[in-house]
């Protein structure tokens, strides 16, 4: 099973690299779709069907919004002469990558190996599932043990929608005489 997961991750990396280097913005957005749909298959392999359902629909809607924005403006990539500062930016990314990798290595040293996760917290949730009465344990966690997080999520979603409406409004609402 792990070999399929590695294949999906390699596909995601290739898709993202192509998406960042494409000459045309439309093909950049479409190859960004590769990353999202490979992520759906990775979620299915990792036994997370709830996430797979949400991710496949969210990816389609994100692509529709991105293509709508591009069709509304321009799909040409900027014509760029070779920028001599490119080496500086690349060096910055390399330094940060090495720094992040050092921290990542220290952190994953404390984690258990892949697939040998010790579900200490989850054991309590699984045993407590008789209290919530919900057959789907993920729904039980979202709406019972951690309902505060769901409330916070609803607030963040509301704030994002208000932000979109504020930015995209050209005319104010006219008052009726």
């Amino acid at each position: 099973m792990e070999i399929y997961l590695i294949l999906m991750l390699v596909l995601m990396i290739l898709g993202s690299i192509y998406s960042l280097h494409a000459k045309d913005l439309l093909s950049a957005v479409i190859s960004y779709g590769i990353v999202g749909f490979a992520l759906v298959i990775a979620f299915l392999l990792l036994q997370a069907p709830d996430l797979a359902i949400v991710q496949v629909v969210v990816e389609i809607i994100t692509l529709i919004i991105m293509i709508a924005v591009i069709k509304d403006s321009t799909s040409e990539e900027l014509k760029s002469k070779f920028n001599p500062k490119f080496y500086i930016y690349f060096a910055v990314v390399a330094i940060f990558a090495i720094l992040f990798f050092y921290i990542f290595d220290r952190v994953t040293g404390t984690l258990s190996q892949f697939g040998e996760h010790f579900t200490r917290m989850a054991t309590a949730y699984i045993e407590g599932s008789q209290e919530t009465g919900s057959a789907n344990l993920v729904t039980g966690v979202i709406f019972d043990f951690r309902a505060y997080d769901t409330l916070g999520e609803a607030t963040v979603l509301f704030t994002a929608v208000i932000g979109v409406l504020t930015i995209l409004r050209i005319k104010g609402k006219k008052k009726e005489k």
Partner: peptide
């Protein structure tokens, strides 16, 4: 583990 799945869903 159901806990990370619930967090990532939101």
């Amino acid at each position: 583990d159901p806990l990370p799945q619930a967090m990532i869903l939101t």
